[in-house]
């Protein structure tokens, strides 16, 4: 019976299962059995969670100046399981940013960005940027006091970018000040433009990974063994276990620390203490200890350097082949960001 049904389906959808099996059973290096090598698949899984929960939230969310806050309150307090979906959406975004950062660090400190994988790294840094922008626009959509003033600060920061700043800020907030246009723009970015950009970049990232294969990295105990294992089912199951564990973790966090709703946005009163989400703590602190223009230019320059780092590293190693300068620079930058983040987290102002 089952064989007949399979035959019937295959006649109408002639998928070459053998070819599929061959494609999915690509041998991957043995080091992928280590759990922290799942950090690439983790954000992809979390992105799917975000797309699903995001679509569901969009059923009730109203992106307008007058109704945004009330619609979020309605989702959180009145719709059955609305609080749970909103909390899972929020926590999956936080976990996604954390896993993308950890994945970036893993790739950087294992030198996996080196030739011929420069483009893989570059698409990865763009993915990091898109993830951060998704976080920022999503946070602003809640339209509570902190998110409103966070968006105001961001708009003013954009203005400080030399030459194109004024235009950038106008384009971002859709006018002179945060108003109805801003929310619509943030909503379109958050629910349309950025997720599409994310899908395209993830596709490119995966294609590049498949083209070049996973970077070879041997631990001391397996040097020279050249051991591999098939992607499917071994690594697929590892990712599946990671996904299930993440779902459990997300639900636990959603129940123990549900997404809260602060005061309604009030354009006339700035709160005494404003802070962005934790992943922007370092830029916020950097902004406070340097000047606005300098902070903007230096942060932009930092991300640009990060984007083209594989080529800078190649240049360094051309002149000093055995040098570990890249690792030291990476460690210095990471510790710097960590210090700024902790500083902003503990400081009152």
């Amino acid at each position: 019976m089952f064989d007949k049904l399979t035959k019937w389906v295959l006649e109408r959808a002639p998928v070459n299962t053998e070819e599929l099996k061959h494609l999915s059973a690509e041998p991957v290096p043995n080091h992928l059995k280590r759990w922290w090598w799942c950090l690439g698949g983790t954000p992809a899984y979390l992105f799917i969670v975000q797309v699903v929960t995001g679509i569901l939230l969009a059923f009730y969310y109203v992106p307008s100046f007058d109704h945004a806050y009330d619609s979020v309150r309605y989702i959180t307090e009145e719709v059955p399981f609305g609080w749970w979906l909103r909390s899972v959406h929020k926590w999956s975004s936080i976990f996604m940013i954390m896993s993308v950062v950890l994945h970036t660090l893993r790739v950087f400190f294992t030198g996996a960005y080196r030739a011929p994988r420069e483009f893989t790294w570059m698409t990865g840094t763009l993915l990091l940027g898109v993830t951060l922008m998704l976080g920022f626009t999503g946070y602003s959509l809640v339209f509570e006091q902190l998110s409103y003033w966070g968006a105001t600060v961001a708009g003013n920061m954009a203005q400080a970018v030399p030459v194109v700043g004024e235009l950038m800020a106008r384009m971002l907030i859709g006018g002179e000040k945060i108003a109805n246009n801003t929310l619509t723009r943030f909503y379109v970015l958050h629910a349309g433009v950025l997720p599409v950009a994310m899908v395209v970049l993830i596709f490119l990232h995966i294609v590049l990974i498949r083209v070049h294969g996973v970077s070879q990295f041997e631990f001391r105990d397996e040097k020279g063994t050249g051991k591999t294992f098939p992607f499917y089912p071994d690594h697929f199951y590892t990712e599946l276990i990671m996904g299930v564990s993440l779902t459990i973790l997300l639900t636990c966090f959603a129940i123990i620390f549900p997404a809260e709703l602060g005061e309604r946005a009030n354009p006339l009163v700035t709160p005494a203490h404003i802070k962005p989400e934790w992943y922007f703590f370092f830029t916020f602190r950097w902004l406070k200890i340097t000047g606005l223009t300098f902070a903007i230019i230096s942060t932009g320059f930092f991300f640009f350097l990060m984007f083209i780092w594989p080529f800078i590293d190649a240049l360094i190693r051309k002149f000093k082949p055995k040098s570990e300068i890249s690792v030291w620079i990476g460690a210095f930058a990471f510790i710097g960001i960590l210090i700024l983040t902790i500083w902003e987290a503990v400081a009152e102002h």
Binding site: L56, F59, E78, V79, P80, F81, G82, W84, L85, L240, V244, T247
Partner: peptide, 20 residues
């Protein structure tokens, strides 16, 4: 197990979408 856990999630989603 997977179907049971994600099925429960799907049930929550259905309840969420069902107009009150």
């Amino acid at each position: 197990g997977l179907m049971a856990s994600y099925g429960t999630g799907a049930l929550y989603v259905f309840r969420y979408l069902l107009p009150e």
